[in-house]
Amino acid sequence: MYSVNYHRASSVADAAKLLKNGDAKLLSGGMTLIPAMKTRLASPSDLVDVSRLRDLQGVKVSGKTVTIGSATTHYDVSTDEKLKKACPALAHMASLIGDPAVRYKGTIGGSIANNDPAADYPAALLALGATIITNKREIAADKFFKGLFETALKDGEIVTAVSFTAPAKAAYQKFRNPASRYAIVGVFVTKGKDGVRVAVTGAGEDGVFRAKEIETALAKNFDAAALAGLKVSAKGLMSDIHASADYRANLIAVMAKRAVAAANA
């Protein structure tokens, strides 16, 4: 790791101020950033630690509205009793991230701000039609995820929470990369008042995306049977040593079917 200056923010405003230092980066759970710094692939001059800010922690459920603080850990999301009732699919998704020690530290805000093309949360938030709340504005998930490791966040902007309306039905199915345990393909499906949304992570060359043809098929009939015979195109999908684009295309169809079945179960 290169030399770095560590700061512990006392508030979101303080964090915003500290972020003006050199090439500063926010540090939340650190589960992606610190390994990247260890291998010298990331070299921020300063780290602004927001992980201990109480304002950014916790899950709130009010009626159908779910709000999750950006520094809420995957573990806390996966075990939150209110969330398990309101949107069990998201709690389940959080329980599939990394491993138990990673889930204790990693946070929803860190995950979406990093927008790893194989991370789980981007698919969930996109499929849930969530709103990403920052210290400056609110951004719809559809506008937030911009490609590989790219988001709509501007310099100095801090994610403080995400919010969404719990859908009537939802489920996440993940096929893990056997080595990294990230998603080779993860599919999050929801059926809410605005219809069916299906988001795919792990597969797209430009990161998380909505699978429109699957959405169309499911809009007519929200049942795995509606996807029988579905052929997902391999165009625009990643190929690497773990999975070809064709294989990923197949997995999108399979995981989508299974997710729908799970959502209906």
Binding site: Y6, G30, M31, I34, D99, Y104, K105
Partner: peptide, 21 residues
Amino acid sequence: GACVVHVDGRAVKSCTMLAAQ
């Protein structure tokens, strides 16, 4: 996971956390 310790009662990877943190 060879580095797992308990920090404030939770098992975390001490190789992925700064001492300052």
